[in-house]
Amino acid sequence: MAIEHAAVQVVRKPWGIGDLHPWSSIDVAGDPVGELWFQRTHKHAAIPALLLKLLFTSEPLSIQVHPDDEFARSIGLPNGKTEAWYILAAAPGARVALGLKRRLTPQALRAAIRDGSIADLTQWRPVAKGDIIFVPAGTIHAIGAGIVLAEIQQRSDTTFRLFDYGRQRELHEKSAVAVSDAGPVQPETGPRRITTARTALITSQHFVIELIDLPANSNWALNADRETWILAIEGRARIGSTNMSVGDAVFIEGDRSGIEVGADGMRGLMAYPGPDPVVALLQGAGELTKYAGMSAGDAPKSSETVEVQA
């Protein structure tokens, strides 16, 4: 049983930034910060299946790809890396790359990595605040400059680089060709409303990501029977004994907690292992748990609020 105000690990990157406000009050002295990793606070706690991060970019990141579970295990790793990005802020003209403009054979992909033409073959798209982008393992991708995003991913740091803008780091041609789905991406399924307070943004085998929008001065019950991460992106709330404001995260597993929402309401991201949204995770004060045990497709479509067992 655990309810923890997540600790923050600072990861410095040359493509990061020097001012993290309003997402963090950490004093960024020295090298720029590219990532904040949210971690459990207890030293000997079990390692969660998911990793929650904030990324800050002043330059484009490398064009890269991650392995799926099968390939990762074939090289002795516990799992692959599927991820998703929620755009928290984006400068005018900010963009990300997802997939390729056309399908390449393994031989053509290898040649494009060697001569650098892969940079012109990636499919770039503009992004804006509130966008959600799903990046399945095997998808060639990149994050451009001028973006702040929340990343939810399988807990893995295995990355194969295809292009790195002359940064003189190693490229991973053989592995990248082996794991890449070297073509355009499939259209994403749109967000789906679960209740008036909860919208499923991503539903995948590895994780579910919800946007939660809790009204001002409301009270909720959170019942999480599996690991659940909550990241505050607007407003304030108190979860158990933990005060949350923008950029704070809470980890909860095998426990129940109350949520008291502040005078300005609270919007946040909530993530937990997939494959399906759990209908009974968040319950408004005074509501009955009559929907507990329903499948996601049976979730109420009106203003009814349900308990969610994440």
Rank of each mutant, 00 (worst) to 15 (best):
G138C: 11
L121E: 15
I87Y: 01
G99H: 02
I239Q: 04
Y291H: 15
I152D: 00
R95C: 10
D27W: 05
G99F: 04
R155Y: 10
T305L: 11
I118F: 07
A90E: 05
Q154I: 05
R238T: 13
Q153N: 03
L36S: 06
E4T: 14
R110V: 08
T196V: 12
M244R: 00
W37S: 03
I140T: 08
V127A: 03
I194G: 13
M1H: 07
S302G: 10
T41N: 12
I233F: 03
I259W: 02
L171I: 12
G16S: 03
D27F: 08
Q205G: 11
I63A: 06
A91L: 08
R267E: 05
A84K: 00
T203V: 15
E83P: 02
W85M: 00
A237Y: 03
A263V: 13
R238G: 09
F163N: 02
R267G: 06
I75W: 04
T139E: 02
A271V: 06
S303R: 09
G144P: 02
Q64V: 08
L100C: 11
D298T: 08
E59K: 14
A112H: 06
A97E: 14
I259M: 09
T189I: 14
S302E: 06
L149Q: 01
S175D: 13
A128Q: 14
G99Q: 03
G240E: 02
G144Y: 01
N223G: 08
E59C: 03
D248S: 10
W85T: 00
S180K: 05
T158K: 03
K13W: 06
G286S: 10
E260D: 10
G138T: 07
P277C: 05
R193A: 12
L121T: 10
I47S: 14
A296F: 10
I26A: 11
E287V: 09
G268R: 00
G138K: 01
V33S: 05
T158L: 06
T189K: 15
R12T: 13
P32V: 09
Q123C: 09
K81D: 04
T196M: 09
Q123Y: 11
N79Q: 15
G166W: 01
A97W: 11
P184W: 02
H172L: 13
L77Y: 08
W124L: 09
A296P: 10
E151C: 03
V177K: 05
L282F: 09
N79T: 15
E227L: 09
A176P: 15
N219V: 09
G166F: 01
A89N: 12
R238I: 06
R169M: 07
W23P: 07
S117K: 03
A263M: 09
A224H: 00
Y165F: 14
T203I: 15
L214V: 07
M244K: 00
G99A: 07
G235D: 04
V177L: 08
F134Q: 02
I113D: 07
K290Q: 11
A112G: 11
